[in-house]
């Protein structure tokens, strides 16, 4: 599972950087590299685009994992690049943007939009896997998540828009409930689908998400 990101329109990035001349670009060696949105190659390409727009590049770097503790260290290691920059362009997920922003007293501009947590099914083709609803129902749905994979997040079976195994929204999207039905049937567990699923608890996770989980086992000693 990784954070799936997509490059913003260059017009939008140019707009966000209006008035800033010195720019430092930060990529990420983890999810954004795997998505080919914030790796070495994309950072180098962005550098050329910004230079063509008349920006002065004070530095470019790809930190190992933009969201974690090492980012502040990487920022310290490249102090001059950041000190000389009017703005930092983050080619990372939104988590990376926020980690950098909390470390730097500089505007941090996202170059990417963060789409969802998912996986790459084929080259360049990404699917969302889990919406982190805080109330897992996979035990009744044959390991396929209807909250995520059904366009409407339905819990009690397919809607009238199901069409030959596909969803009415198009894009060749599979109907989650057709898949769930097929698997449950193959396993002889259709009784799971007959069970009434009550409305979800949308406060299962407080918003903004914040939780204190007591330590268990030996760690609790």
């Amino acid at each position: 599972m990784k954070t799936i990101t997509r490059l913003k329109d260059m017009d939008k990035i140019e707009n966000s950087l209006a008035g800033d001349t010195g720019v430092c670009i930060v990529g990420c060696g983890t999810c954004a590299t795997m998505c080919r949105t914030g790796g070495q190659e994309q950072v180098a390409s962005m550098k050329r685009s910004l230079q063509a727009l008349g920006k002065v590049l004070t530095g470019t770097l790809v930190v190992p994992t933009a969201c974690d503790e090492l980012s502040p260290q990487a920022v310290r290691d490249h102090k001059h690049a950041f000190d000389d920059a009017d703005a930092v362009l983050a080619m990372t997920c939104a988590f990376g943007v926020q980690t950098l922003a909390s470390t730097l007293m500089r505007p941090v501009i996202p170059a990417l939009d963060t789409l969802f947590l998912g996986k790459e099914q084929a080259v360049g083709s990404y699917s969302e896997i889990c919406m982190q609803c805080g109330e897992c129902v996979l035990e009744d749905t044959a390991g396929i998540c209807p909250v995520t994979a059904c366009h409407k997040g339905l819990l009690n079976g397919p809607c009238g828009g199901t069409n030959k195994g596909k969803c009415e929204i198009g894009n060749d999207t599979d109907c989650a409930w057709a898949m769930i039905y097929n698997r449950l049937q193959a396993m002889g567990r259709l009784d799971r689908m007959r069970k009434y699923q009550p409305p979800k608890n949308y406060q299962a996770v407080s918003k903004p998400g914040k939780v204190q989980i007591p330590l268990q086992g030996s760690e609790a000693q």
């Binding site: 079976g157 397919p158 199901t162 030959k164 195994g165 009434y196």
Partner: peptide
Amino acid sequence: IVTPEADPLEPQLLKFEKKIQA
């Protein structure tokens, strides 16, 4: 509502029964 021409039909019929129970 129910869609008698749904393809596949079986999941639709299962939901039809759930609606009756509801």
